[in-house]
Amino acid sequence: MLWLKALHIIFVVTWFAGLFYLPRLFVYHAGLKPAEVADRERFKIMERRLFTMMTVGGVLAVLFGGATLGQAPGFLQTGWMHAKLTLVAGLIGYHVWCYRLLIAFKHDRNQRSERWFRGFNEVPTLFLFGIVILVVVKPF
């Protein structure tokens, strides 16, 4: 069980690294001037590669988390785990939203401002705080 938990944590870190950095790339991408075509193409490549890495991290985090729960099914009886899984579902939704934004940038159809992306970039921090507090403090 400790190996599963360790692998879960490693891939959660990998996933969050991508969730923190991809929206930051969107901030810079959205701030490009129309004439900066070469930079725009470079951002598209970086965003695609980062999204792939963070998707692998997210999938493995969920799989190893599920395997850990399979070894300790009693956690499913706790309120804090229900709250954590709800936040994880929200994080998956945020990940999918990042994909949709990535596709918009890929096809040069982004409609959002650099400023909007600065706010969007902060959302994973809220999820991280909530999840860590639930796991460590177990308030329910």
Rank of each mutant, 00 (worst) to 15 (best):
V88T: 08
E122D: 09
R115V: 14
L76A: 06
K106Q: 15
R24A: 02
E41F: 07
L19W: 02
A104E: 15
A83R: 09
G58E: 00
H95Q: 01
W116A: 01
N121Q: 13
R118E: 05
P23W: 03
L25Q: 13
L50Q: 07
A72Q: 13
P34T: 07
E47S: 12
F129R: 03
K106H: 12
E41S: 11
G18N: 13
L32P: 07
G18D: 01
R24M: 11
K33W: 01
M46P: 00
V88C: 06
A72V: 15
T78K: 14
S113F: 00
G31Q: 09
F26A: 00
F75S: 01
V13R: 06
Y99A: 09
K106W: 15
N121C: 08
L69A: 12
F140C: 00
F105P: 00
P124D: 08
A83S: 13
F64P: 00
K5Q: 09
W80L: 07
G18S: 14
G70K: 05
F140N: 01
R109M: 13
A67H: 03
D39H: 12
V62H: 06
A83H: 04
T68W: 13
P139M: 05
G130D: 07
A17W: 10
R118H: 08
L32R: 09
A17L: 08
G66S: 09
K44I: 03
E36H: 06
V12M: 11
L7A: 13
E114L: 03
G79C: 05
D108K: 06
F64M: 07
V56W: 04
A104N: 07
V62Y: 12
R24E: 10
Y28M: 11
Q71G: 15
C98M: 13
M54N: 08
A35W: 12
W3S: 15
